[in-house]
Simulated scan of single mutants.
Amino acid sequence: MPRCTHCDGHVSDDFVRVFAAEDGQVRACPNCAANAGIAEVSRDRGRKA
């Protein structure tokens, strides 16, 4: 079951397919980031990791 690495919230396989980083990790999800900015938040968190 895929999880957000930031908040440990559940995400769907489709969400992972669209928003996961190149390493397959989801660093932002609707539980911990504004829906309009998920891609940007994920990218920023990935740079800090």
Rank of each mutant, 00 (worst) to 15 (best):
M1E: 08
M1H: 13
P2E: 02
R3I: 00
C4A: 01
C4V: 01
T5I: 08
T5L: 05
T5V: 08
H6M: 02
D8V: 03
D8Y: 01
D8R: 07
G9D: 01
G9M: 01
G9E: 03
G9C: 06
G9S: 14
H10F: 03
H10Y: 07
H10P: 08
H10L: 08
H10E: 05
V11F: 00
V11D: 07
V11H: 03
V11G: 01
S12W: 10
S12A: 12
D13S: 09
D13G: 11
D13K: 00
D13Y: 00
D14R: 02
D14G: 11
V16P: 03
R17A: 15
R17T: 15
V18M: 02
V18R: 04
A20K: 00
A20Q: 07
A21S: 15
E22I: 08
E22W: 12
E22T: 13
E22V: 11
D23F: 02
D23I: 09
G24M: 07
G24Y: 06
Q25R: 11
V26H: 09
V26R: 09
A28D: 04
A28E: 11
C29K: 04
C29I: 09
C29P: 01
C29G: 03
C29H: 07
N31V: 05
N31L: 14
N31Q: 00
C32G: 02
A33S: 15
A33P: 07
A34Q: 14
A34R: 10
A34N: 07
A34D: 11
A34S: 14
A36P: 06
A36H: 12
A36Q: 13
A36W: 10
G37C: 10
G37W: 06
I38N: 10
I38E: 06
I38G: 01
A39P: 03
A39K: 08
E40Q: 14
E40A: 11
V41E: 05
V41N: 07
S42L: 13
S42G: 08
R43E: 08
R43I: 14
D44N: 14
D44Q: 15
R45D: 06
R45S: 02
R47K: 13
R47M: 12
R47A: 10
R47Y: 11
K48N: 13
